[in-house]
């Protein structure tokens, strides 16, 4: 783990959702309660001014973690500590509010994340206005900071393209002077050429303003470009954590390895590889032991019964009983 002091610290984070049918149906159809564990015992640290990325496929719990880290969801178990304030246990409303002012989020869908009936000026200054702050000239300054023009302040969101809207979302996130920004798939709805613009903007802001990022994505290539450290999630569990280059050159978990091999390559002309087998299991009844064992080529009896813990393997952390063996292969 990194030795730098952590700005954000996540410990044993767990979130369960009750997805049971209504009480009456359960009684009539004699169904048990069904509990979906979206996030299970996840711990990691983000040092100040670094970008930590969470990657995973659908159902991996990456968005749920993001929402818990900004306080949109409360953890069932475990804690999120940001700048020394434990978001779910802090009792002082003042300290809590001060902490939340420093946390912001950029969402996935640039079409749904801006109120269509509001003018851009009001949208991007809302975080400040809501706290009674001074917003004179703020909208203009923010717009220019994200590469739009000050005249755009009086337009409505529908007058902007997807990429420009994502710039607006970034402007809103910046307005309250945050220290920590969670980006939930910020470019997955954008075209490649526009994605590059938005990613560059975020890199620039990171260096200029000294921001700390949590970057959530399903796209390994984007993550590799943006992150200082990457966590790989599978079915709500953190299965591997490593620096980008280490992750790509020496994956320490068979799932990471599979993801890397399955991603289409720009130079993979006529590539003939055996595609991965199986699909992501039902999160309501996850496999016993290691969640990945039904798809894993290395699976042994131990994997079917004992859930591996995340442990240090070289410079990385991996939750695989046979992480050392994987590297040897």
């Amino acid at each position: 783990m990194s030795t730098k002091p952590a700005m954000v610290s996540v410990r044993n984070l767990t979130r369960r959702f009750d997805v049971s049918k209504p009480w009456l149906n359960r009684v009539v159809e004699r169904l048990p309660k069904s509990i979906l564990t979206a996030v299970s015992d996840v711990s990691f640290d983000i040092p100040a001014k670094e970008t930590y990325a969470l990657v995973g496929e659908s159902g991996s719990g990456k968005s749920t973690i993001g929402k818990m880290m900004v306080g949109l969801l409360t953890p069932t178990d475990g804690s999120v500590t940001i700048g020394g304030v434990d978001l779910s246990r802090e009792t002082s409303a003042k300290a809590m509010d001060a902490a939340r002012e420093r946390i912001q989020m950029v969402f996935q869908d640039p079409y749904a994340s801006l109120n269509p009936r509001w003018r851009v000026r009001n949208i991007i200054t809302e975080p400040v206005a809501a706290r009674g702050g001074d917003t004179t000239g703020l909208a203009e300054r923010l717009l220019e900071q994200v590469g739009l023009s000050a005249e755009d302040a009086d337009k409505y969101p529908h007058e902007f393209s997807g990429g420009q809207r994502q710039r607006l979302c970034i402007a809103r996130a910046l307005s309250s002077n945050p220290r920590f920004i969670v980006c939930d798939e910020p470019t997955s709805a954008l075209d490649v050429s526009v994605q590059a613009q938005v990613l560059n903007l975020m890199s620039d802001l990171k260096t200029d303003l000294g921001l700390t990022f949590l970057f959530i994505s399903h796209d390994l290539t984007v993550v590799r470009h943006m992150a200082d450290r990457i966590g790989v999630l599978y079915l709500g569990r953190l299965v591997e954590e490593a620096a980008p280059d280490a992750l790509f050159t020496t994956p320490r978990h068979p799932y990471t390895k599979m993801l890397l091999e399955a991603a289409p390559k720009l130079d993979g002309f006529g590539r003939e590889t055996e595609p991965p087998t199986g699909e992501i299991p039902d999160p309501i009844n996850p496999p016993k032991g290691c969640a990945y064992h039904p798809r894993c080529p290395l699976a042994q009896d131990r994997c079917r019964s004992e859930r591996p813990v995340l442990r240090s393997v070289g410079e990385s952390r991996s939750a695989c009983h046979f992480a050392e063996k994987l590297v040897a292969d």
Binding site: A112, S113, R131
Partner: peptide, 26 residues
């Protein structure tokens, strides 16, 4: 469930303000 409402919740807007200013017009 749209993200603009989540964005408003995130910055600590009260329930009343979110209902009146964000959801009602839509």
């Amino acid at each position: 469930n749209k993200e603009y409402v989540q964005a408003a919740r995130l910055i600590g807007r009260s329930k009343g303000a979110i209902m009146l200013r964000h959801i009602l017009p839509n």
